[in-house]
Amino acid sequence: MTIDAVHLTKQYRDVRAVDDVTLCVAPGEVHALLGLNGAGKTTTIRMLLGLLRPTRGEVSLFGERVGPGRNPVWARVGYLVETPSAYPELTVTENLQVMARLRGLRDENAVIDVIARLGLQPHAHHRAQTLSLGNKQRLALAKALLHRPELLILDEPANGLDPAGVAEIRNLLHDLAHDGVTILLSSHILTEVARLATRIGVLDHGRLVWEGATTDLVTQARPRLRVTVHDPGRATAALRAAGHAVSAEDGGLALTGDRAIHHPEEVATQLVNAGCPPTRLALEQDDLETCFLRLVSRS
């Protein structure tokens, strides 16, 4: 496994920020940690990178246990955690040159290449303090990618980017994954994650409440037949008498049984016969955000 984290726990006095999280990420995988603000995503990532010592549990990257001190494994890892940082008085190019020296890179074209890859050419000679939040985020990503890592660990990589920038970063990460780079990212933007990640873990109050393939999350979307009538009470009684499970939902009625979903014309006929014809009848399905919120509410 590229990432193997077992029983990670982080306790701050009376607050358990991360609670017994076990996480495995295979080579070449794009794994996303989803969660609301305060769910424990950043704390988990900081422990994976050795920036925080776990209260309990351990982390291995590429089979090497992460701990205090120097470790050659970091030459294979690029990361972005929380707020992007840079030397404010130095230009974009100078910031990357400093990082290249710290990384011991000998490739003189590495800085030029990563500036082009992140679309930073127009800002290459601008001081970091003058950059917009989105371009500061691009610079931070450039620093993470400078040494061509095998593993990228990114905390909210689309933070501060406009929709076009979000799409650019998504395409960049997609290309990196296609080239065999393993990616672990955190986000609260479900739609973007679903378009990129192969696996998703949902964190809530420090606990991993669900993990699986992205396609498995999609299959949790519940279909239902939505019905609007002038007399909901009478319609509910008629439908229940016909054997349907009915609930009130957003000013209408919702039927989730297979018979109603596969035979909506039968429901319409039953309502007409009961003297309360539907004014609207439509098959709907939960979106991914609803599935995500349902998983969180269960915990």
Rank of each mutant, 00 (worst) to 15 (best):
L8P: 06
A26L: 09
L281E: 02
S60Y: 08
S60E: 14
A254L: 09
L208D: 08
A142H: 10
I183M: 09
G57Y: 03
A177I: 03
A26R: 15
A268H: 12
V30N: 05
A260R: 00
Q11T: 15
R13N: 13
G275S: 05
N273K: 09
A238W: 01
H174N: 14
T130I: 11
F62H: 04
R103S: 14
G57S: 04
T214C: 05
R207Y: 05
I115A: 12
L208E: 07
I200F: 05
W210A: 14
G69Y: 00
D20P: 07
L36C: 05
I169N: 03
L281C: 07
V227D: 00
I261R: 02
D162F: 10
I45N: 04
L80A: 11
Q129M: 15
C24L: 13
V111M: 08
L288W: 02
D258M: 12
I153F: 09
E249M: 08
L172T: 06
L120S: 10
V73H: 00
L133N: 06
G206R: 06
V73E: 06
A260F: 01
I189P: 02
T219V: 13
V227W: 00
T22S: 15
A197Q: 02
L51W: 04
A245K: 11
R103K: 15
L208F: 08
Y79L: 13
S85C: 13
L52V: 12
N37K: 10
D231H: 13
G180Y: 11
G251A: 01
S85Y: 12
F62I: 03
G119K: 04
P232A: 01
R76H: 13
R117W: 10
L190T: 11
E108Y: 01
R148W: 10
G35P: 09
E108N: 09
G63D: 02
V227N: 00
L49F: 08
L255C: 03
H263G: 08
P54K: 02
Q137Y: 11
D287T: 02
T256E: 13
R207L: 02
